[in-house]
């Protein structure tokens, strides 16, 4: 019945070998599978801390001040204090205030306390304030009032400005009656300017 020629013999052998090969392939599939990544274990101590208080990681809070400047607060971690839910403790806080008319102001600090009722942010441990018109100021602490958009420093400042570096006792950034944003450094300002030859 079966014509005994090479082709038929080939087909008969194929009918046996191919399924076997398939079976071998299939079985090794699961042997060589990549091991899945190790599960990220959270150390128990952190677990204790995480669950003990409400916290958000990488939060952003945005809004608009009364004078129309849009602000955005971003941070690594925000923790809500138990007693007063308006108080938010923020680690490595960054605030950006884009004012409609004037320049934009960026504040970064080690920690910040945001009082959402008063819309005030207290910034601490090395506050750096940068404005788009070329001023970079560093101080130890500052207040940002997100209601009015005013900023007030609590420590002496070192300032790099478009025309040289100077130190000042205090800085307050606010809008004057005509709405123009003013930066006033007071309590003593000292600039040393090196004229380029």
């Amino acid at each position: 019945m079966s014509a005994d020629n090479a082709y038929s013999r080939f087909v008969n052998w194929a009918k046996i070998i191919l399924p076997l090969a398939a079976l071998v392939l299939l079985s090794t599939l699961f042997l060589l599978a990549r091991t899945t990544g190790d599960t990220t274990e959270i150390p128990f101590a952190d677990l204790q801390e995480i669950t003990s208080q409400q916290r958000i990681s990488a939060p952003t809070i945005s809004g608009v001040t009364n004078s129309g400047d849009a602000y955005q607060i971003s941070a690594d971690v925000a923790k809500f204090s138990q007693e007063d839910t308006d108080q938010i403790q923020i680690d490595s806080i960054a605030i950006t205030i884009n004012s409609a008319t004037g320049t934009d102001i960026d504040l970064i600090a080690g920690t910040g306390e945001y009082d959402s009722a008063e819309r005030m942010v207290a910034l601490r441990n090395l506050v750096r304030i940068t404005t788009t018109n070329g001023y970079v100021m560093e101080t130890i602490g500052a207040w940002a009032n997100l209601g009015t958009g005013d900023i007030e420093t609590t420590g002496i400042l070192e300032v790099r400005s478009p025309f040289g570096e100077f130190s000042a006792g205090h800085l307050s950034i606010s809008r004057d009656e005509s709405g123009a944003q003013q930066m006033v450094f007071n309590e003593g300002v000292r600039l040393v300017y090196e004229p380029q030859p």
Binding site: A180, F185, N186
Partner: peptide
């Protein structure tokens, strides 16, 4: 004219829009 210029004052105010800085 190459000596450093030192300016000291009680305050310095900068108008953000016009960029004018005045001691």
């Amino acid at each position: 004219s190459s000596a450093p210029v030192e300016i000291t004052a009680d305050s310095l105010s900068v108008d953000q829009e016009t960029g004018i800085a005045a001691f």
